[in-house]
Simulated assay, not measured.
Amino acid sequence: MKLVFATNNENKVKEIRSMLGDAFEIITLREAGIDIDIPEPHPTLEENAREKSMTIHNMTHQNCFAEDTGLEIHALNGEPGVRSARYAGEQKSPEDNIDKVLSELNGNTHRQAQFRTVISLILDDKEYQFEGICPGTILTERRGGKGFGYDPIFVPDDADVSFAEMDMAGKNKFSHRAKAFQQLIAFLKAH
């Protein structure tokens, strides 16, 4: 089965391809000849994921999926949440975003957080959604050089290293995105 993945993020493409193996052919936006930055104007991950998948489906008329992910920090009332990529501004700088989180939490001992991913799949003109959650803790400083985004400051529950200190296989054992994609894969295999 061929699916267009509505993302320009090569790190996310690598993650999903590492989970899917050869079962499905994932086509990136670039491979599909699409060069747009899909807006994320909505207040929820669910609506933004739907916006992205519907935009690409309407352009390609192919089965496709999109995801939206947010880091939700309890002490910050769920922020950065839906604004995770743009938390420190429209330049979408991971370093600036991490700096802002660390600054906002400075001195706060309540550092519980979760990553949450919502996938919107358009299959045969119908939409289906899947969610994955990874609870964890925000560190007081960066650790590790792997991964992307907030990975250097997030340690999943039941782990003793940050996402940025894990290889892809290790990250996929805990990852919110992996949990959502496992649901997606199970759904696709059943159809």
Rank of each mutant, 00 (worst) to 15 (best):
Q129F: 03
L188R: 11
G147D: 13
G89N: 10
K14N: 01
G78A: 00
R116V: 10
R17K: 15
N77P: 13
A190H: 08
S103E: 14
G89T: 07
N77A: 12
K2A: 05
R143I: 02
T55Q: 03
S84G: 02
G78Y: 05
G70P: 07
K146V: 07
K173S: 14
F130S: 06
F148R: 08
N106K: 15
D158F: 15
H42I: 03
E104G: 03
L184P: 04
K171T: 03
I185S: 07
A178T: 08
G149Y: 09
R50G: 06
I38H: 08
L105T: 04
A113P: 00
T7G: 12
L139A: 01
L123K: 09
G147Q: 03
G81L: 03
Q112G: 11
L3Q: 05
P152Q: 05
G21N: 02
E67L: 10
L71Y: 10
S93P: 04
H57K: 00
T44E: 01
K171G: 02
M1S: 15
E10C: 00
R177W: 13
A159R: 02
E25S: 11
A178Y: 07
L20Q: 06
R17T: 03
N8A: 07
F181W: 05
E31T: 08
K92Y: 07
L121N: 04
R142G: 06
P135I: 04
E165K: 07
M168L: 14
D22S: 15
Q182E: 12
F163S: 01
G33M: 03
A113N: 01
I73D: 06
T117I: 07
G136K: 09
N172V: 02
A159S: 08
F24V: 10
Q182Y: 11
G170N: 06
D22R: 08
F5H: 09
Y128L: 04
E95T: 01
N8W: 11
C64M: 04
G149L: 09
A190D: 12
D96C: 12
S103C: 13
H191N: 15
A178Q: 11
V155I: 15
H191I: 10
R17Y: 12
A6V: 00
L139V: 14
H57V: 08
E47S: 04
L20P: 10
R83F: 05
K100W: 06
R17A: 03
P152W: 09
A49P: 05
A178C: 14
I133S: 08
T44Y: 07
A178W: 06
M1G: 14
Q182P: 10
Q183H: 02
T44A: 00
A6C: 11
K146F: 02
T28D: 12
D158P: 11
Y128Q: 05
T69L: 10
E131R: 10
K12H: 09
A190K: 02
A66Q: 06
E95K: 13
E141Q: 15
A190Q: 01
E141G: 07
D158K: 13
L139C: 11
L20G: 01
R83M: 02
D160K: 14
L139D: 05
N9Y: 02
